[in-house]
């Protein structure tokens, strides 16, 4: 249990670092950086915990992104900013960049070697990437779909 706690704390810390780094790269206003770091830590901690309890990567991502999106409504109302300013840097740590890279290099390798196993592995990576991305996006939208029903203005 202690080892799990240490792993979650480590990943949460580096999740916060990664979220803040991306927030600066995305030119996020200075006064929101702490909230972005909190979203990154929360997302990474919840996903690590869920995966430690045997949940698959896609469901764990969905769970974490719903939590991050719901959490981002807290800072949203005070400085009047869109929730995405906080939630996107928070979930960017969960974007499946490695799966995307493996899928693309798999297809390039298949062009060279014509091995069906490589082709299937590349498709598997691509579908995993798409499923995780769908889970991320659906998790981000779900709270706003539940809280704001078909608003026409901001």
């Amino acid at each position: 249990m202690f080892a799990l706690g240490a792993t979650v704390a480590l990943k949460a810390f580096f999740g916060a670092v990664a979220a803040t780094g991306f927030a600066v790269l995305f030119n996020t206003p200075r006064y929101t950086l702490l909230w972005c770091a909190a979203c990154g830590a929360l997302g990474m901690a919840l996903r690590t915990l869920a995966m430690a309890f045997g949940v698959g990567v896609e469901l764990a991502t969905l769970f974490a992104s719903v939590a991050v999106s719901a959490f981002s409504f807290w800072p949203h109302n005070r400085p009047t900013l869109p929730t995405h300013i906080f939630s996107i840097p928070g979930v960017i740590t969960m974007v499946p960049g490695v799966f995307a890279y493996q899928a693309m290099t798999g297809f390039l390798r298949f062009v060279q070697e014509k091995d069906q196993a490589i082709f299937l592995a590349a498709w598997h990576d691509l579908l995993t990437m798409l499923t995780i991305l769908m889970a991320l996006a659906f998790g981000l939208v779900l709270p706003s779909l539940c809280l704001r029903i078909q608003k026409k203005t901001l």
Partner: peptide, 24 residues
């Protein structure tokens, strides 16, 4: 324009990638 100087933004992106390496 940009809030952060480009060198600072590159350094922050670099730290973020380093954090990813530890997460992996």
């Amino acid at each position: 324009g940009h809030i952060y100087p480009r060198t600072l933004a590159a350094a922050c992106a670099a730290l973020a990638c380093g954090a990813f390496a530890v997460i992996f």
